[in-house]
Amino acid sequence: MTMAPTKYLHIDRVCKSFTNGSKVTEVLSDIRLTIDKGEFVSIIGHSGCGKSTLLNLIAGLTDVTTGALKLEGREVNAPGPERAVVFQNHSLLPWLSVYDNVKLAVTKVFSSTKSRAERHDWIMQNLDLVQMTHAADKRPGEISGGMRQRVGIARALSMEPKVLLLDEPFGALDALTRAHLQDAVMDIHARLGNTMIMITHDVDEAVLLADRIVMMTNGPAATIGEVLDVAIPRPRDRIALASHPDYVRARESVLRFLYERHRFVEAAE
């Protein structure tokens, strides 16, 4: 209890099972994790291990079965803008322009606290943060996949979230675009100091971005297998890091976890 102030986001013995008729499938079992304010946490694991389910639990899009999830001491049981999500497939509304997509979020969150002009400035400021002001009037169908993901990040940031949740946001992008966006996220994290939780299956991405890497065991009934501190000082530069001993060591231990101790067995059942 004396540690209370540092428990910004507290995941306490959370289990999640899905019921389909009489069949109960336990997806996550006994997840315990505490995340500090301003921390960048990567969650890595093989596909199907329930890492997206864990993110949905934090977002409030799915309810926990047992256990508790608290943000600043308050229980999370519904989705809300203070836990904004950057979705895997951008989830921009195709009938709205880039500007209007961000505006939808800003109008909803700041309608009572910001004037119309302030809201406009805030939208443009967030688009500027991801370098997308030039495409403000374009529709999502008219810009590239990387740009759409940038707008998704701008929309999430514009809600001024306490925790920014990123659900494999760069999974569908090519390597070069992904590197650009990783740099953009690092830059934003450095400037705003947001608490960020990112789901990924890319070991390099996890090590490059995170303060801590949470490694998940394989499902069903997946849990946290190991947590690795990445003590590499920021700002981090991907080229200098490539041969950095700490980086190489961190990368190696994640790889060991994923491919030696918790090797992915397809069609386990």
Binding site: A59, P79, G80, P81, V85, F87, N89, S91, A105
Partner: peptide
């Protein structure tokens, strides 16, 4: 995905009807 966006934004029923 659109429903998730609406949920995160806490759009109410009327906003959801018109905007999504």
């Amino acid at each position: 995905d659109y429903r998730n966006v609406a949920a995160v934004l806490r759009l109410n029923q009327i906003e959801f009807f018109w905007k999504i």
